[in-house]
Design a protein around this nucleic acid. Structure first.
Lengths: 192, 192
DNA sequence: CGGTCTCTTGACGGAGTTCAAAGCTAGTGG
DNA sequence: CCACTAGCTTTGAACTCCGTCAAGAGACCG
């Protein structure tokens, strides 16, 4: 498990064993069971999280209770709510474990410390956020310009591993359509 | 004009006059006329841009020619296409001046140099991207859960200055609806 | 003063939503 | 290990909102 983190880091940033060791030593290990909430509206997000195993989702709700999923993250991916983390302000989001999940956590403070010792880390974390921004913009663009069917196909193509591990109503929630509509698209495809 | 930048920087990051001077000295000044393209699909984005005066938009098109606006930026705001800038890959976006616009430009390389001399800059630029991500997520959420009318009202409330400087068809493009629908919403409000 | 840009309007059709019901599956506790 | 329940998925009917197409009027610029 700790080895997964080593492997991951080596593939993505050029760090020596000593630096990795340092990073790991500053992290808090956490196990979250399926359905456990890691963040809720009103909380302040205190950590950057790295997922060793399992899966989490980032979502928001409306007053009527409807859920709208912003992001999924699985093994070897990062998750946080940067707005709340950076400013220490209450978040509007939930982060929920969708499976039993193992995580490494760093507080903002510890991560800043690490970034001083390991300067590449700063650039790396900026790149992660930039990638998230690019993804989210891509998503806005798709939502505005593509049909539900295209977006559904794209989702399966781009995130097959996520798709196979979540119920359809979450796919619908991510795509921004009703479950009914998603079923309709699926049925139309079966008949072809 | 150069003073605007000084004022802006002092309000937003804690830099001394010397650092500001340094930043400014590394920048390239540019004037873009209305409708000038600062970035086009296939280009590699080479700069972080700071807007001294005027206004730009970031948008994408589909094969059918339809335009979908991701972002507007006005005086004292930053604009770039981080995905292309960071990786040196061709962009899918346009950046266009909507008015005659004065800009300061830094190449990735120069900005990195600056960040070494002025460490706060790194954190600051990460915060800007994080803010953009938060905005874009907010927008995904709104698109999925709010009515066109609510989104229109939100837009006017949140970006009155942008709203007053662009034609309605761009508002529609930003909101992800047809001009027809936007007009319909506006008429319904007039009659109230 | 001609042309481009901007905004509105009407008719029509299609895609997505809500509400409601029901079958199927998988996990859990006794 | 079986029975039961909760969660997942599909389906149908009725309706509503939004998009496309097409036309026209007003405003602004050169």
């Amino acid at each position: 498990m700790a080895d997964d983190f080593n492997t991951y880091i080596k593939r993505n940033i050029n760090l020596n064993d000593e630096d990795i060791q340092l990073m790991h030593s500053m992290a808090l290990e956490k196990k979250a069971h399926r359905r456990e909430m890691l963040l809720q509206p009103g909380d302040v997000c205190r950590h950057k999280m790295f997922i060793l195993s399992g899966m989490v989702r980032l979502y928001r709700t409306r007053e009527d209770g409807s859920e709208h999923i912003m992001h999924f993250a699985t093994e070897n991916e990062w998750m946080t709510e940067p707005e709340s983390l950076n400013h220490g302000t209450p978040t509007a989001y939930y982060i929920e474990a969708l499976e039993d999940t193992e995580l490494l956590l760093w507080t903002k403070r510890d991560f800043t410390q690490l970034s001083i010792a390991i300067p590449q880390l700063k650039t790396y974390s900026e790149n992660i956020i930039a990638k998230n921004l690019a993804m989210t913009r891509e998503r806005v663009f798709n939502t505005m310009s593509a049909t539900v069917e295209e977006r559904y196909d794209d989702f399966i193509r781009d995130y097959p591993d996520v798709f196979n591990r979540i119920p359809l109503h979450m796919v619908a929630s991510y795509l921004g359509v009703s479950l009914k509509t998603l079923t309709r698209v699926r049925q139309a495809q079966v008949k072809r």
